[in-house]
Design a binder for these strands. Sequence first.
DNA 1: CCAGTGACGATTA
DNA 2: TTAATCGCCACTG
Length: 109
Amino acid sequence: MDKYNFFRNVYDVAKLIPKGRVTSYGAIAAYLGAKSSARMVGWAMNGAGTDPKIPAHRVVNHKGLLTGKHHFEYPSKMQELLEADGVEVKNDQVVDFEKRLWDPMKELL
DNA sequence: CCAGTGACGATTA
DNA sequence: TTAATCGCCACTG
C-alpha cells in the first residue's frame, strides 16, 4: 500500500506496546494523526483479538475499561492476558490506568 | 447506492 | 454533574 493506512498503522503500534503497559484507542489514533477516529482503532483491533501477534488486550478505552473483551476468544481472556503482563485488573478496569498508560506520542515519539 | 452499526472520545445542553 | 449528540471512517446488509 502506498498511502498511509490508518488501519495498518494501528497494528504496528499495537505490537510496540511494551509489556506491563496499556494504551487507549484515542492515544493510538492521536499518534496516527486522527485523534477523532478512535473508533477506527477499535475496529482495527477487531481481527487483532484473535491474532496472537497483536496484544489487543493492552489497548483499552480512555477510562481504562476493558470494553473490547468480548471480541476475544472469550471475555475473560483479555483480563487474563493483562494479568499475565503484570497489569492488575479490577472489575473489568485497569488499576492505576494512568500510571500504566503507554502513550506512543510521548513514549515512542 | 443507502442506512445502520461499532472495541471511542470530545463537546454541548 | 450527568446525559445526549456529533464526528470520524470502515464494514455489512
